[in-house]
Amino acid sequence: MSKEAKLFGEKMKQMRETLDLSQDELAQELQISRISIANYEQGKQVPGLDAAIQIARKLGISIDQVSEEGAQLNLGNSLEKVSDSELKEKLKQSFAKAREDQG
């Protein structure tokens, strides 16, 4: 389990529970399987960038709040200083690394 996958899963579960959503409810709203939600939360699987963005939006948080890359870049208060394309590229690299670590 990669550090990125674990961090993403922990944050995702924390936010889902804060919103009082079950894994089933979140899966239905995102139109993905409950097993995928469980795997993401346990750090067994890393969602693709588009899925991660969709999850973050549904949970009402920014993608940098659920990614190691965001923590490393300290984007919380300075997101406007980072271009969308730059952020997307950094996140893509982070998720690609996490996927490599899994396989």
Rank of each mutant, 00 (worst) to 15 (best):
S22K: 04
S22A: 01
S22W: 04
Q23A: 05
D24H: 07
D24T: 12
D24Y: 11
E25D: 08
L26Y: 09
L26A: 07
L26P: 03
L26H: 06
Q28H: 15
Q28E: 15
Q28A: 13
Q28M: 15
Q28F: 15
E29N: 09
E29M: 10
E29H: 06
L30S: 09
Q31N: 07
Q31V: 00
Q31L: 02
I32F: 05
I32H: 02
S33E: 12
S33R: 10
S33N: 11
I35R: 08
S36V: 00
I37L: 03
I37F: 00
I37Y: 02
A38H: 09
A38L: 07
N39W: 02
N39Q: 13
N39G: 02
Y40E: 05
Q42R: 12
Q42T: 11
G43M: 05
K44F: 05
K44I: 11
K44H: 11
K44G: 01
K44S: 05
Q45C: 04
Q45I: 13
Q45L: 13
V46H: 01
V46C: 04
V46E: 00
G48W: 02
G48Y: 06
L49R: 14
L49S: 11
L49M: 12
L49I: 14
L49C: 08
D50V: 13
A51I: 14
A51W: 03
A51P: 00
A52P: 00
A52S: 13
I53G: 02
Q54L: 13
Q54S: 14
I55S: 03
I55R: 07
A56P: 01
R57T: 07
K58T: 07
K58D: 01
K58L: 08
K58Q: 10
K58S: 09
K58C: 04
L59H: 07
L59C: 07
G60M: 01
G60A: 02
G60T: 04
I61N: 01
I61Y: 03
S62P: 02
S62K: 15
I63T: 00
I63Q: 00
I63H: 00
I63R: 02
I63G: 01
D64S: 14
D64W: 15
D64M: 05
D64I: 15
D64A: 06
Q65M: 15
Q65V: 14
Q65E: 15
V66M: 15
V66K: 10
S67W: 11
S67E: 09
S67N: 11
S67P: 00
E68V: 12
E69K: 14
G70C: 04
G70T: 14
G70H: 05
A71E: 13
A71D: 05
A71W: 05
A71R: 15
Q72P: 00
